[in-house]
Design a protein around this nucleic acid. Structure first.
Length: 294
DNA sequence: GAACCATGATTAC
DNA sequence: TAATCCTGGTTCG
């Protein structure tokens, strides 16, 4: 269940362990067999993220494009060369959550894949398994451009143009809480970041986009960028400021202390005491504090 | 073992 | 707005 920070971490991981490696690409599950065959035996040249989309580039100019949806995840494992190059270390899973595997053992090749593995990438030194994606396909450069052209700016990308987000918001009468979830307006923000950034900036999620001031839109962009950067560094979504979780360090801020409003409906706001609300808007649960957010 | 739920998104009505 | 797809963990009976 990944928002943009997870995809950037996965892109970094894949780039770390596979760039320059000739790989076998397969689909144990069988639902990506044709696309995998176009990449099988070729060398990976890099990986990057745009919002929640992952792109893995190959030397034959084709690109693996993956979107994890709500459930997708990647698992990785390999020898010491592999884990030494890795951002995340020994065999691990990233997507929804990540965890260290058990005891270290000598690497003896990839494990038998689970029956649900849509795509498996294997190099001389390690492997990556993809399970449960909504999108897993092989694209030409032209097709990559088409996909990316439909995505709004990603605050984690250095060349992102926030003006695109501001323009999308200013012309819209939809609630800002809905606009933040629209990947064509701003990409990489999901249900937790939207709720938490709106709380932190004290903006009512139901206000129409066009009612926000330039200054408010800029604060939202900057805060989502700030929170995404923390997410990339920590590997989890931590949105509380240290003074709002006294004595609990960033790395140990488990659900009770990690967020202000997400999944805290019915509880008193930790800043103003008002009961946190939750309502389903446009098919997703929206959490906010009616006291702080106006 | 069924039912339900989730950090997502598209499609159809 | 509802139905649908993707998977797996948790909760329910």
């Amino acid at each position: 269940m990944p928002e943009g920070h997870s995809i950037h971490r996965i892109a970094r991981q894949i780039s770390d362990v596979f760039t320059g490696e000739r790989v076998q690409v397969s689909s144990p599950q069988g639902r990506y067999t044709e696309g995998a065959a176009l990449l099988d035996g070729h060398t990976i040249t890099g990986a990057y993220a745009h919002g929640k989309h992952l792109f893995v580039t190959f030397e034959n100019d084709l690109t693996l494009n993956v979107h994890l949806g709500i459930y997708g995840n990647w698992s990785f494992g390999g020898d010491e060369t592999f884990t030494g190059a890795s951002s995340i270390g020994a065999p691990r899973k990233i997507g929804e959550k990540e965890y260290a595997a058990g005891e270290e053992q000598p690497y003896a090749g990839p494990p038998e894949p689970k029956s649900t593995v849509r795509c498996r990438i294997v190099s001389e030194h390690g492997w990556a398994d993809l399970v449960g994606p909504t999108i897993c396909r092989t694209l030409t450069p032209e097709e990559v451009r088409t996909v990316r052209s439909k995505l709004g700016p990603d605050p984690l990308n250095p060349d992102a143009d926030p003006e695109q987000f501001y323009r999308a918001a200013r012309k819209s009468s939809r609630p800002i809480g809905v606009i933040l979830m629209d990947q064509a307006a701003i990409s990489g923000v999901g249900n937790i970041f939207r709720a938490e950034s709106l709380y932190r900036q004290e903006i009512d999620p139901l206000r129409p986009g066009k009612s926000l001031s330039d200054e408010e839109l800029e604060r939202l962009w900057e805060d989502n960028k700030h929170l995404l950067v923390i997410g990339v560094r920590v590997g989890r979504i931590i949105t509380t400021e240290p003074e709002d979780r006294p004595g609990v360090p960033e790395t140990e801020a488990w659900p009770d202390h990690a967020n202000y409003v997400y999944m805290h409906h019915g509880e008193p706001c930790r800043r103003c005491g008002t009961t946190i609300r939750m309502e389903e808007i446009a098919g997703r649960k929206l959490y906010w504090c009616p006291g702080c957010q106006v």
